[in-house]
């Protein structure tokens, strides 16, 4: 069954907690005794969406498994900012091996746990978009195809951030990165490329695939919890703005995630065994421009003469998502 938002208690399900709700209806993040799996002292940039997304997701998984969790982490910002010698921010058993093998390492952990009869301990693999959609894609697909008992979480900040913001196959069209500079006839990233990994994950017919953003905590936690209810390969793709890489204000991280979803640029949905089972509807429809404008990586679209045509193409992408996933209620 799809996520049921709490109808109305001043803020409904929109805020992290809500003093008017039962404890069980509040988010994991609202709990005083949440696990803080990724704890203070990490070296993520101010306002890092990935740091936030990782804590949201892993805490939720910890909650769902009664703290019986092991995580394998791909190289990337999350790994670098959380475990520079001599300090680790993790409170869970955690391993970093390589950039491209998190899914396989996790498969190995799951195999070890199975053979040792410790099925109660669950395994998560996690990485950035680069580590997931590009270099780790083979291992990811292998893990999916074998239906290994692993939940893979991709923290998508739409570029290789740790190496200084280079294009990945998750970088959106028109975005400026260090390898798709805003110069030439078609400034920024090209149109028509990129890889839709949630769709590819679904094509593997794995039990559970979902997308989520750091702006909708209850939805994210619901999906992690739901994913932990399945055995076999599962995939959650979390949209996590990167203030540094996107040239956005550090306080706008959640706002941008919200706008990405509300514009339709990032469709939020879940799928079981290859079929979409629910979508997160747009609540306040807005044009893509509102999402693009606060980000320097799109600044070239808003120069003296706004690149109306490019913005329109991006709007088309959003509109197509809206249509494809039915993101708008008839009423809205």
């Amino acid at each position: 069954m799809a996520f049921q938002p709490v109808k109305f208690y001043q803020t409904g399900t929109f805020t992290v907690g809500n003093r008017l709700l039962d404890e069980q209806q509040r988010s994991v993040q609202a709990q005083e005794e949440r696990s803080n799996s990724l704890n203070s002292g990490h070296r993520a940039c101010q306002g890092c969406g990935e740091a936030l997304g990782a804590r949201y997701a892993i805490d939720a998984a910890m909650h769902a498994t009664g703290n019986q969790l092991i995580a394998a982490n791909a190289t990337g910002c999350l790994e670098v900012f959380s475990t520079p010698y001599p300090e680790s921010s993790w409170q869970i058993p955690w391993i970093h091996s390589l950039f491209g093998n998190a899914a396989a390492v996790a498969s190995g952990i799951a195999a070890a746990l199975r053979v040792k009869g410790r099925g109660e301990v669950r395994v998560i693999a996690q990485g950035g978009d680069g580590g997931t959609t590009d270099i780790g894609f083979g291992c990811l697909s292998g893990m999916f195809e074998r239906n290994d008992d692993v939940l893979y979480i991709c923290y998508d900040n739409e570029a290789y951030m740790n190496t200084g913001v280079q294009r990945s196959s998750a970088t959106p069209p028109a975005a400026r990165t260090a390898t798709t500079m805003a110069v030439g006839a078609q400034p920024g990233n090209v149109f028509g490329q990129g890889k839709n990994v949630p769709a590819i994950a679904m094509a593997h017919d794995i039990p559970y695939v979902a997308t989520a953003t750091v702006a909708e905590l209850h939805d994210l936690e619901y999906k992690v919890k739901k994913a932990m209810g399945f055995h076999g390969a599962r995939y959650i793709h979390v949209f996590v703005p990167c203030p540094l890489g996107w040239g956005a204000a550090s306080q706008d991280t959640i706002k941008l995630a919200r706008l990405a979803k509300e514009t339709g640029l990032f469709p939020v949905f879940e799928a079981e065994h290859g079929e979409v089972t629910s979508v997160s509807k747009i609540r306040r429809p807005i044009p893509v421009e509102e999402y693009l404008r606060p980000q320097k990586r799109f600044a070239h679209l808003f120069g003296q003469e706004p690149a109306a045509e490019v913005i329109a193409r991006l709007q088309t992408i959003a509109d197509r998502n809206i249509k494809k996933f039915g993101l708008l209620d008839a009423a809205a």
């Binding site: 091996s97 390492v105 498969s107 190995g108 070890a112 291992c139 292998g142």
Partner: peptide, 27 residues
């Protein structure tokens, strides 16, 4: 008891081995 895993590459083979070994399995 033994888990025999048909992986998708040698890179994965060693990576799965890394995970399994780190989780305490003879690999």
């Amino acid at each position: 008891p033994c888990e025999f895993i048909n992986v998708e590459s040698e890179f994965a083979a060693m990576s799965v081995a890394i995970g399994a070994s780190a989780a305490g399995a003879r690999t």
